[in-house]
Nucleic acid binder design. Structure first.
Lengths: 371, 371
DNA sequence: GCTTTGTTAGAAACTGGTTACTCAGCCCGG
DNA sequence: CCGGGCTGAGTAACCAGTTTCTAACAAAGC
C-alpha cells in the first residue's frame, strides 16, 4: 500500500474512463462532470497551475498564445475557479453581512436594497440575516455572520451596549445603524429622530395645536424611546403644550385600536410612533366618524411608500432609507480598504406636510387657555 | 536566504514583540491581534491541529482533559475557526443564494423572509442579489451567485428559456420560482395565476358583471402575460363577457392615471394587474367622484399587506408568499442532501372578497344585453 | 562573443481547515 | 506471558486557489 496514497483510492473505480476523478460529493440526478479545478485545466493546457491562475486573473505576463490555449482548455472543461479557494488564498470573501431586526420593516428593506446595490458596485455580495426571533442570540448571530464575510452592517437596537462593546472588535470592520457606541471608533449612521419630532411638533404648533397625543411604539424599541423623549422635550419647552401618551404599538391594528382612546384624550393632534400606526389611527377615527384633518390632525413618522396614498395622505417625516444603506456601504468600503470611515452621519428627517394635518378646529384652540 | 523562507519575511518587523506574526491584511484602527489559526491553538495547547479540529467539532474521541486544555487555549487566543477554510475542506459553504428581479416587490420580500428563516433552521445563510438593473447580465449574476454558495433559488422571469436551460446544470442545485423549465428536473414553485384570475372573474360574474376592463402590467412581465391570458380565456369561455384591455403598468401611479380610461371603457368591473395598480385606480376613481363598489367594482391581485387597509378594502387574490420561500428551502435542502426534491407545487391563490367589489349598478347590467 | 537585462513560466510554499490512515499504549482473555 | 481489540492522538494528504522566488531563454549592448 502506497504511503502517498490518495485517500479516495479505496473508492470503487466507477469512472467510465481512467479520466478525471470525481468530486468528493456528487449530487444525484444529472450525470454531472467532475467539476474542473485549476489543476485539471493546467494539465489539459500543458501548463502549470500558476499560469492558469495568471490567465484567469488577466495577468499580462503570459504570452498571448499560451493564454489562448489556457482559455480554450478552461472553456472546454467548463472551468470556473472556486471562489471559496480563492477567498482562502486572498483572505477576502467579497461578501458583507447585514443584520436587521425585522425584514418586514420597510426601513430595513430599503437599507437592504441600498446596501446591496452599492456593494454590488464593488463586486461585493450581501449576506442577510434577520435577528427578530432570538434577541438573546443576536450577538452570536452577529459574530457568526461577520465570520462568513469581510464586514458587517449591524442594525441591532436591542443588544445591550456593554455586550456590543465587548464584541465590537470581533465584528470589525463594522458599521452601526441607528445606534452608536460612544467612545469607540465604530462608524455609525443614524436618523435624527429628535429633529424629525421637533419638525412635526413645530408644524402642529404653527397650526395652532396645543394638545397632542402620542401613540407610543414598543417599549423595547430604541427608536420609540428617542421619539418619545424628543416629544416630551419639545412639549416641555412650550408652556402651553399638553402631551398625552398612549401605549400603542407598531402596527396598523395597534393604531386602529387606539382610536377611542385618542378621542378621550381630548387632544387636537395625534403624533404616531410610525406611519403604520398613524394609518391605523386614521382608519379607526374614520370609522368613528371623525374627520381628518377637520376634527383632528394626524402625523406619522417614516414616510413609508404608502403614506402618500392614504386618505387623507399622511403628514409624516421622511427618512432617506436607501441613502442609509448606500452610506453604510461607503463606510464599510472605506474600512475594508483600511482607511478611516468618514464622519458619522445623523440623517435629518424631512417634514412632509400632506393632508392629514390642518388647523385646530374652531372653538377648540382655547381648550388649554391659548392666547 | 532561506529556501523555506516565509514570503512575508520581507515585511518590516513591526510587531511590538517577537510574538505571533501578523495577519496578512491588517486593518487600520485597533491594535488587533493576529487572528488565531488552528495551528497556533494547537501549538499553544501542545497538541496537533487534528486534535484541535476534533475538539472544535465536538468529536467524542478526545480525552476530556485534553479537550479542556484545547478549549482553554482557543479561548485564550480568541480563536474562531475560519469558515472559508472550513468550506474549502468540507466542500460546502452552508450558504444559499436568492436572486430576485426586484427587492421592492412585497412578493419577493416575503419570499426572502420565508427562505431566510427556513434556511437558518439548518444553519444555512442567505446571499441576496437583485437582478433588476441589468437584465442582460441576469444569467451571469445567477452563475456568480451560485458559485458563492451551495444552491440557488432563482426568480428570474426574464431570462429566455433557452439561455436558462443552457446554464441550468451549472446552477444546480437550483429551485425556480414562478417559472418552470419543461422537461428538466429542476424543481419549480409557482403561483397559479390563471386560477386566481378565474376565481376573480367568477366572483365578478356572480355579482352580475359582464364588462370587465383589465389594467395590464408591464408587457415584459411573465406574470402579467399569465394573468392576461387567463383573463382572455375566462372571458372567451363566457359568451356575454366583454373584456377591454388597457396598457397600464405595475405602480400606483399607473393605476391612478388609468382612471379616465377605465370610465371610457364602459366596463362595470376593473381587474388590475396587481394591488398597487388597483390601489391607484381606486384613488383616481375616487378623485373623479366614482363610488367603489357602488358605481364600479375593482379587484387587485397579490394581497399585499396594505390591501386590507385601502378604502374600501380591496378584493384581491392572496398568494402564500412566505410559504413560497419556505417550500423553496425544502426543495433546495432536499437537493443539497442529494435526494429528490419532491413534486413541483402550483400554489393556488385564495380569493379574498373585501369591499371593493359589489353588484353591478342597477341599470347597467343590460348594457351587453344580459338576460 | 560574452555579459546584461528582460520576459515568461514553473516549483513550491502558502491560505486554514478536515480526515483517512497509522500507530502507540492499554486492557483483557487465553 | 503474549496476542488481539480498543482508544486516543498524531501524520500527512487534501480541498483549490494565489504568489514569491527562481530559472530558462531570448534579445540587446559592449
Amino acid at each position: 500500500m502506497s504511503l502517498t496514497g490518495d485517500r479516495r483510492a479505496a473508492q470503487p473505480a466507477d469512472e467510465p474512463t481512467g479520466g478525471p476523478r470525481s468530486g468528493r460529493r456528487r449530487r444525484s440526478g444529472r450525470p454531472e462532470q467532475p467539476a474542473a479545478t485549476i489543476g485539471r485545466v493546467a494539465e489539459a493546457a500543458g501548463v502549470s497551475r500558476a499560469t492558469v491562475s495568471r490567465v484567469m486573473n488577466g495577468s499580462p505576463t503570459v504570452a498571448a498564445e499560451l493564454a489562448a490555449r489556457v482559455r480554450a482548455a478552461a472553456e472546454a472543461l467548463n472551468y470556473e475557479p472556486s471562489l471559496v479557494a480563492r477567498s482562502l488564498a486572498l483572505g477576502r470573501t467579497s461578501t458583507v453581512s447585514l443584520i436587521v431586526p425585522d425584514l418586514s420593516n420597510p426601513m430595513f428593506q430599503d437599507v437592504l436594497r441600498g446596501l446591496s446595490h452599492a456593494a454590488a458596485g464593488q463586486g461585493y455580495r450581501l449576506l442577510v440575516a434577520e435577528s427578530n426571533e432570538n434577541v438573546a442570540e443576536e450577538a452570536i448571530l452577529a459574530v457568526e455572520a461577520r465570520r462568513r464575510s469581510d464586514g458587517l452592517v449591524l442594525a441591532s437596537p436591542r443588544v445591550p451596549e456593554a455586550e456590543l462593546r465587548a464584541i465590537s472588535d470581533r465584528l470589525a470592520p463594522l458599521v452601526l445603524l441607528n445606534r452608536d457606541l460612544p467612545g469607540s471608533s465604530v462608524p455609525s449612521l443614524s436618523v435624527d429622530y429628535a429633529a424629525g419630532i421637533a419638525a412635526i411638533v413645530a408644524h402642529l404648533r404653527s397650526l395652532g395645536h396645543r394638545r397632542i397625543v402620542y401613540l407610543a411604539g414598543p417599549a423595547a424599541s430604541t427608536s420609540n424611546r428617542e421619539r418619545q423623549a424628543a416629544l416630551r422635550a419639545n412639549c416641555a419647552a412650550e408652556p402651553v403644550c399638553v402631551l398625552t401618551e398612549l401605549a400603542c404599538g407598531a402596527t396598523f391594528d395597534d393604531g386602529h385600536a387606539a382610536a377611542k382612546a385618542i378621542l378621550r384624550s381630548g387632544a387636537t393632534a395625534v403624533v404616531a410612533f410610525n406611519d403604520m400606526v398613524a394609518f391605523g389611527a386614521l382608519s379607526g377615527l374614520h370609522e368613528l366618524g371623525i374627520g381628518v384633518p377637520r376634527d383632528l390632525s394626524v402625523a406619522g413618522f417614516d414616510d413609508i411608500p404608502f403614506a402618500r396614498y392614504t386618505t387623507p395622505p399622511l403628514t409624516t417625516a421622511s427618512i432617506p432609507r436607501n441613502e442609509l444603506g448606500r452610506q453604510a456601504w461607503d463606510r464599510l468600503w472605506a474600512l475594508l480598504g483600511g482607511g478611516p470611515a468618514g464622519h458619522d452621519v445623523h440623517f435629518q428627517p424631512r417634514l412632509l406636510v400632506r393632508d392629514s394635518t390642518g388647523p385646530v378646529p374652531a372653538g377648540r384652540a382655547e381648550a388649554v387657555g391659548e392666547r
